[in-house]
């Protein structure tokens, strides 16, 4: 039973991690690429860490919760880095598919 739960968590975690990076490689402008690593990858690593906590709690016989620390840390820092990156990109006027609001739309969006 716990074996199935662990396998599901590990598989989900690895899949989300992969999809996050796929988004990073596949999407067409910086701002859309930002979404993959911020959400999918963070949840993926979160799933893996929960799997690790469950695994070591069962294996070691005593509760192992310090994985929660990394999970919390990642969930707090991911939006902060995303915000800073978006801010830096806006500052550098990185090419965007969506028209940024303080500038007129830069003609038809190109790839």
């Amino acid at each position: 039973m716990t074996d199935i739960l662990l396998s599901l968590l590990i598989l989900a975690g690895a899949l989300f991690t992969f999809v996050g990076s796929l988004g990073l490689a596949r999407l067409r402008d910086f701002y859309t690429r930002l979404h993959g690593p911020t959400k999918a990858t963070t949840l993926g690593v979160g799933c893996l860490l929960v799997a690790s906590a469950v695994y070591f709690s069962l294996e070691g016989g005593s509760l192992s919760l310090h994985e929660v620390l990394v999970t919390l840390f990642l969930f707090i820092t991911a939006p902060v880095s995303a915000h800073l990156l978006a801010k830096a990109a806006l500052h550098l006027k990185v090419k965007s598919l969506a028209p940024p609001p303080d500038r007129p739309a830069p003609g038809p969006a190109r790839d």
Partner: peptide
Amino acid sequence: DAPDRILALDTLYVNTIAFLV
């Protein structure tokens, strides 16, 4: 662009955490 590369580095370290776990 530079932000793309930083985002890639950011993702790489999160992937490293996943791999280590």
